[in-house]
């Protein structure tokens, strides 16, 4: 079934139906097969397992009856993985050699490299993941500049350090804003209106209310955080726009979090697959998109890109965005 909607008016309101169709049972199968093959190959299969997981999650994400697609392969990620591993080994050797001369310098170098590595990995991950994501045959892309982003990141990090961490709220939102605003889907641009000051207030009030409610507010705090993340995301194409907003309530979060805890504890951790899927479904079920961009009228603009360095780097050091 296809809807060909060329005839629709440019500015007419579109309806968007975002869904996640994954099932716990299938996800469990994927996790176990990944596990089996990774163990049998003494870990070498790991990048292929990552690719399988991502392909499942993306493929089960559906907007208006069309599936998203992750086209990254295990082979690409394996190459990235080897690069990261080599880099890591070289770094350890370097640190070891420096530590023989002056231990203090070794520590400084280690921190410096670690800090520099974070923006490097964020950039690489966005670049790779976006280039491997497509929808209706149109690629996503990431237009961020590595050098610019790293320099900005260092500046934000420096401000965070000298303000004893207070600026870290701005850092977090600046990173979100920069990365999101550089995402393209064909000729659609993503927008992000996050602001460190607003975010600081959300986190501060959430913290205070949670303390004064003896922890009960934590579910509403989660709602506020989710709402802040989602409500600031949008898209634009010329004068057409899409706005996202959260429909999740504190009660919904209570149900999600308590349910997840319950599943994990009573399944001795085996229910993790169902928890993942429940959470993913929850997220997509509580994002409402409104606007007038017609996703069947998008043109390919993003060039192909081949480098899986960041993707593995992110994974290797377990950085979550």
């Amino acid at each position: 079934m296809t809807i060909i909607s060329n005839n629709l008016e440019n500015n007419s309101e579109q309806s968007y139906n975002l869904q996640f169709l994954g099932s716990g049972k299938e996800w469990f199968k994927i996790i176990i097969i990944n596990w089996l093959l990774t163990v049998l190959t003494l870990g070498i299969y790991y990048p292929w397992a990552r690719a399988k997981s991502l392909r499942y999650i993306y493929g089960k994400t559906v907007l208006n009856n069309e599936h998203f697609h992750f086209s990254g392969t295990g082979k690409e990620m394996f190459r990235g993985f080897v690069k990261v591993l080599l880099g890591y080994v070289l770094l350890l050797i370097l640190i070891f050699v420096i530590s023989l001369i002056t231990p203090i310098l070794a520590i400084i170098v280690l921190y410096l490299v670690a800090f520099l590595f974070i923006p490097f990995a964020i950039h690489g991950s966005f670049k790779y993941k976006m280039s491997r994501t497509s929808y209706r045959g149109i690629r996503f892309g990431y237009r961020g500049e590595r050098k610019e982003f790293i320099l900005n990141f260092i500046k934000w990090l420096f401000l965070s350090i000298i303000t004893l961490g207070i600026y870290s709220f701005w850092l977090e939102m600046n990173v979100r804003k920069y990365t999101h605003e550089n995402i393209r889907y064909g000729d659609v641009e993503f927008t992000n209106t996050s602001d460190g000051g607003d975010w600081f207030i959300v986190m501060l009030f959430g913290y205070i209310k949670t303390i004064f409610s003896l922890g009960i507010y934590v579910f509403w705090w989660q709602r506020d955080i989710f709402e802040y993340y989602i409500n600031n995301i949008g898209m634009k194409k010329g004068d057409q726009i899409v706005k996202c907003h959260s429909t999740a309530t504190g009660g919904d979060f209570f149900e999600l979090i308590m349910g997840n805890l319950f599943i994990i504890i009573f399944s001795f951790g085996l229910g993790i697959a169902w928890v993942d899927i429940r959470t993913q479904k929850f997220i997509f079920d509580h994002i409402k998109m409104e606007g007038n961009i017609n996703f069947s009228e998008i043109s390919q603009t993003e060039e192909e890109y081949k480098d899986a360095f960041g993707e593995d780097a992110m994974d290797f050091f377990e950085i979550e965005i």
């Binding site: 060909i4 929808y135 149109i138």
Partner: peptide, 14 residues
């Protein structure tokens, strides 16, 4: 089949 040509997001019946 629905065919997406990878140039625009429109599909055509094939």
């Amino acid at each position: 089949a629905d065919y997406f040509d990878g140039i625009t997001s429109n599909s055509s019946l094939s």
